[in-house]
Design a binder for these strands. Structure first.
Lengths: 202, 202
DNA sequence: CTGTAATTTCAGAAATTACTGAAATTACAC
DNA sequence: GTGTAATTTCAGTAATTTCTGAAATTACAG
């Protein structure tokens, strides 16, 4: 570990945060290292810097690839795999959200839909449990629908929108004449968010 | 476990998803049970329904309280503690985001700020590592700043905004005259998001 | 093809996290 | 205060996850 002190600190911090972020220490540290490296690194260099076993690094890199968080590259006349993270932080944010949605939201939404579909047949229509489940499903759909819409917006348009913050409202609270035309198109949901990694076994 | 089948399924699903959501099986199941219960439940009832040990349930409830995800209530003439989740799903969403931000974002933002502050003194100003760290910190500040702003908006105004989705843009892309007045107030960051649970030990 | 470098797989060891039952503490009725 | 119900703590155990080194596989140069 002949890392510069700042790099070192970030690497260790990412390692510690890893468990909270749904990855492990190794994966967190590898990611931080790649994120801060100017040049792509190969597995042996990562072992070297972080002091993990070769196999552990291999698994860590595999995991990062499963998360779409690293890119594989090659150098001329060198058949080892080199890894980088995207330069553009916004790209990283997008994949991070996509992947977490895929793992943390989609399976549940899928489950709720299945459950409700099955329950529709059965007699009871206003069972309070079903009511609550329906409410939850609707919320998930509203949120994922919103996300899918927002995610269409290219970064250079999205950033100014974010900077606007809550002031969006001030603009939208303009005279009826302006916003009125947008009234019809509510409910941006119901499709998408397919079947996910199906943690549910039915 | 004499739970109705839908409740049962949701409970088991939440238990399985728990690890992905940063809680454990017990906590996930307890939460689902409370979420779907019409009436508040006490610890013994929860043990009963889920088949966990009394102590495990106690710890689970403590954890849910730490997350602000459950409310403590009392029945007249009964000195046991009863627990519920808020009726309003939006309240739940807000606490969920708040708490995850607190655990997953704030410690890192805090760390990055400290690191940059310390590095400012040291000679090098355009070290590529520092540059990258700065970039990351700015991103975190933009995002948390946006969130803090949006979080101010009351639910009944927020929901229509969400339904609007990407169409927000269409409204904001109106003639300069309308949006122009909002240009000045960019950068909604730099304060807030204090020191967090400080996973960093320095 | 053969040989070698690079990577992956995998069984077991190490570390961490979850869970239990017993003991301790707290909170209140009498 | 004493006694009892409710809850929490905690040490030990169970279960899970992470990590390693050795063996297997893959990829390619000659």
């Amino acid at each position: 570990m002949k890392l510069d002190p700042v790099k070192q600190e970030v690497v260790l911090h990412f390692g510690e945060m890893g468990s909270r972020w749904g990855i492990n220490r190794t994966v967190g540290q590898i990611y931080a290292l790649l994120f801060l490296s100017e040049a792509p690194l190969n597995a042996d260099q990562i072992c070297d810097e972080l002091g993990f076993s070769r196999s552990n690094v291999s698994m860590g890199l595999k995991e990062l690839q499963a998360w779409n968080l690293v890119r594989l590259q090659h150098q001329v006349g060198d058949r080892r795999d080199y890894f980088t993270t995207p330069e553009d932080l916004w790209e990283i944010v997008r994949t991070l959200i996509d992947e977490r949605k895929k793992r943390e939201i989609d399976p549940t939404l899928s489950k709720l839909r299945t459950l409700l579909l099955a329950a529709e047949d059965s007699s009871v229509e206003n069972d309070p449990t079903l009511q609550r489940v329906r409410e939850l499903k609707d919320l998930f759909e509203l949120l994922t629908g919103w996300y899918e819409e927002i995610n269409q917006i290219p970064t250079d348009r999205l950033v100014p929108l974010l900077r606007l913050g809550a002031a969006v409202q001030r603009v939208l609270m303009l005279p009826e004449r302006v916003t009125g035309s947008l009234r019809g198109r509510s409910d941006a949901s119901s499709k998408g968010a397919a079947d996910a990694t199906a943690i549910d076994g039915d």
